[in-house]
Amino acid sequence: MAATYFEPAREVRALPVSNSQIVLYGVLATVTMLFAAFASAYMVRQGSGGWQPVALPGVLWLNTLLLAGSSATIELARRQSRTVGGTDGLANRARLDAAPTRWLIGSNLLAFAFLAGQLLSWQQLAAAGIYLPTNPHASFFYIMTGLHGLHLLGGLVLLAVAWITRRETTMSCAATYWHFLGLVWLGVLALLKYA
């Protein structure tokens, strides 16, 4: 016994991900769990009484396209910004060049259009006399689309921050978050439409 446990200090093998990426993946995990909880609640609730499927407004398909477009434009912005590279040698301090601005504007406009479309779908449902408490399917529809919209608004804030600070990592995180919300939306839509 009593060997030494001394070893020469070595660099901790740094993770290939930056701080902001860890936070991002943490947030993605949290949001995934949130929507997974709603999805399982949806399936459980479907099994008990009072369930009447509501015909979903057709505008949702258009919204899906808008969101896909927004995702595509932000990806273009991200790719272009990568070519600019760092200014002070540190990857996470890399700054954005002015080049991706038009893609970002496009992405923002499409996102706002998506949110407007979601509001339109609420309006259409309400016009058809279907409100939040009307039946459980409608409740899930309003709450899940609402939550998704709120998360998208949060993403818009992140995007604004990326735009103002012009930091490459923030931009990159915003883009990943955007794609993720696109996937969440597909999941929500599939659940509400087909489950």
């Binding site: 769990m33 997974a36 909880a37 939040l132 409740s139 709450i143």
Partner: peptide, 20 residues
């Protein structure tokens, strides 16, 4: 997060007239 989801649903049950 699942408790968050549950809390949201309970709030709507209490104030929004839903039946979760």
């Amino acid at each position: 997060p699942p408790l968050t989801a549950a809390a949201i649903m309970l709030l709507f049950d209490r104030h929004g007239g839903t039946s979760f």
